[in-house]
Structures are given as C-alpha cells and as structure tokens.
Amino acid sequence: MALIAFGLIAAVVILSALFVIAARNPVHSVLWLILAFFSSAGLMVLIGAEFLAMLLIVVYVGAVAVLFLFVVMMLDVDFVELKQGSLGYWPFALLIGVILVAELALVWSASGSLNFDAFDPSPGAETNTEAIGAVMYTQYLLLFQLAGFILLVAMIGAIVLTLRHRPNVRRQNVSAQTGRRRADATELKDPAPGQGI
C-alpha cells in the first residue's frame, strides 16, 4: 500500500517538476511548481516526517509560492521571446545536472549501509515534532539561531535598500485620522432662507 502511494506521489512530483520547465505560460509553471511542493509534502508524510511536511506546505506553498505567483502574474514579460535563446544554455544546464547526480551517487556510496526500511522519523522521541525540536534546540542551537539571524539581516537589508524618503509625498497620519472627533470635523449652521452661508 505504502509502496503504491510512494510510486504515485513520486511520479506526480517528477512529472510536475518536468512541467515546471516545459510549460509555456509562466503562471502555469508556478502552478506546477506548487503541485510539486505539495506532492513532496505527501512523500514526507509517507516516511513519517509529518512536521516537516506541514511546514513545507505552510512556508513554501502557503507563503513563498504565493509571492512567486503574485510577481509572475504582474510581470508583463514576453516569455516566448525570452525563451528563444535559452537552448544555448544547455551545456551549462547539463553540467549542473551532472554535478547533482554525482553528488547523489557520492552520498549513496558513502553510506553504503544505509537501510531505507529502517528509517526512523522520530529517533529517541515519541513524535517527529519532538525529535526535531530536541535536536534543533540542543545540538544545533547555535546554527539554528544563526540561520534566524541571517534571515533577519536579509529582511532589514531589503527594507533599507527599498526605503526612500521622498519629499512632497502626502502620507497618512493615522493618529490624526483616528483622533478626529465630530466637533473638529463638522459644524452645525443654520442658514437663513435665501442667503446661504
């Protein structure tokens, strides 16, 4: 049963990954990418890494891919024209592919005794979540905190790069808006007939 499920989901991952690069419409590419993410989360559920699976969906599908889609939809680029010269890059792409496969083979041969059937998603803990937490907040605490810090720096950097204080721009003053009372904004007049105010 698990084997059939693995075969199906893995096939979906590979096919959708292929369609990501084969689709003509960039929006379709992103949609296929989302399907690939989603199915990878399914693979993680199958091996029992449920926490990682859910995080993959929340972070990548729920946030990152939304922004991808957001940007791709708003771009008005002629992607057909952009793709014209892309075939010229194939030696480079081939090189990257070969490196990736070589690395995988290296890992495979180095861990010759690796037994995938004996894979334990929650070593020394009751659930996958606890196992990850126990490792992340003890052994790898420094690296984990550093990664968070790097993200913070990147975020502040992005804000600094895009923040511009242009003069003569009207800005909302929220406290003035919410602090407005009826007496400051309206005035009751009693105009005499035929005279107006």
Partner: peptide, 16 residues
C-alpha cells in the same frame, strides 16, 4: 499528531 499545523496549512492554501 500535527492537527493544528494541518489546519493552518490547508487554510493557507485557500488563497490559491
């Protein structure tokens, strides 16, 4: 085991 996260994940997919 990760019920809360599952709900959170599914509701975050609603935007699609």
């Amino acid at each position: 085991n990760v019920g809360v996260l599952y709900l959170f994940a599914i509701s975050s997919l609603g935007v699609y």
